[in-house]
């Protein structure tokens, strides 16, 4: 029973962690090799794609999506999609997809003469279900050796931890005040009852 409880909590916190890892912004230091757009037919991975650009018709089966191709600092490729989040979830309120594509195209460079760029994005890259992180902003860097401190994420996670702590403290206090005394009562009467029953058994034995 204890292991079941642990497993349930582990799954719960894994889901929370996955949610934050997907939703919170992250910054990659990359070199943009090219930008392109391509028709995408959304299938079972459609939850990992945004809706149509704000103002365009919604509910279409497929549409053109902007992509930004890049090589990371460690030499590995990374492809971002570039889509409006609009007024929906996650709350980035991004409407400047076309401007961002223009900026990204402007920052293209070759491996011979690299122009390093910090790409702010959210989401995951997964090759098996063809999903891409959504780029939110690009910023040119002088050199790839910069330390980017995610202040925004630190603040959000601290606030979340504070809320969890507040709920936990209140729950423990509630249990000590309301539930534990009741359980003790039950246990007491259980012990009394058992005493009586075994007493009755004892008397029955004596008779024999």
């Amino acid at each position: 029973m204890r292991y079941v409880k642990w497993a349930l909590w582990a799954v719960f916190w894994l889901l929370i962690a996955a949610f934050f890892h997907y939703t919170l912004p992250q910054r990659d230091i990359v070199r943009i090799t090219d930008t392109f757009e391509r028709r995408v037919d959304f299938g079972e991975n459609s939850i990992f794609w945004a809706k149509a650009d704000t103002g365009n018709a919604s509910g279409t089966v497929n549409r053109d999506v902007f992509f930004i191709q890049s090589i990371r600092e460690n030499g590995r490729p990374m492809v971002y999609r570039n889509e409006d989040t609009g007024w929906g979830w996650p709350p980035y309120f991004k409407f400047d997809t076309n401007n961002l594509q223009t900026e990204a195209a402007d920052l293209r460079s070759t491996s011979a003469d690299p122009q390093w760029v910090a790409v702010t994005h959210y989401g995951w890259r997964n090759e098996f279900i063809s999903i891409f992180p959504n780029a939110v902003g690009v910023r040119a860097l002088d050199s790839p050796d910069v330390t980017l401190i995610p202040w925004f994420n630190i603040i959000i996670l601290l606030i979340f931890a504070a809320i969890c702590w507040a709920i936990r403290v209140r729950w423990i206090r509630f249990r000590e005040r309301r539930i534990d005394p009741v359980m003790e009562n039950v246990e007491d009467s259980w012990d009394d009852g058992r005493g009586r029953v075994s007493g009755w058994f004892a008397s029955w034995r004596k008779k024999k």
Binding site: F93, F95, D96
Partner: peptide
């Protein structure tokens, strides 16, 4: 806050 985010992300 929403107004600030819109400015930050888009402009």
């Amino acid at each position: 806050i929403v107004g600030f985010i819109i400015y930050l992300v888009n402009f």
